[in-house]
Amino acid sequence: MELTAIIAQLVFFVVAVLTLAAAFLTVLVRNVFHAALALVGTFFGVAAIYLMLEAEFLAIVQVLIYIGAIAVLILFAVMLTRGMMQSQESGTNKQWAWAALAIAVLFLGLFILILQVPWVHSGTAVYTDTTPYLGTELLTTYLLPFEVVSVLLLAALIGAFIIARE
């Protein structure tokens, strides 16, 4: 194997392990505030994965939206409901063992499935700035979905405001 391939795979493994570790912390830690911070770590890891897939725009949007907006919303919600953090009961419900078992089976199935399918690599490794193409696509081919998503976002904004208002 080439030197660059070894380095690329090494970087991938480090990022993947860190991302999965943060994801495990998110679902296992009892303190919800710590879980939210681990979630931020997972988001960063996923942004790094996007960078490795040469989707720079998406990586930056991931940091801007997921960390700058969604994670902050979650942290706000954790703070506003901080009375819940005093309780000493465990963070998981009674069905966690069954859930874990079913999910282990699911993961095993997915794992075997992924390894058996002969995936085609037809992507070319030409590096250019793809953002202008993305912008053009968004405002031509995907114009209607783009507008629908904008309206949906507006509706969610107003809805969230009405629901959370005292």
Binding site: E56, F57, I60, V61, V63, L64, I67, G68, A69, V72, D129, T131
Partner: peptide
Amino acid sequence: LNLGLLFLLAMGSV
């Protein structure tokens, strides 16, 4: 960076 200013704003939001 070809997305320099966006990167800057993303870092600001962290």
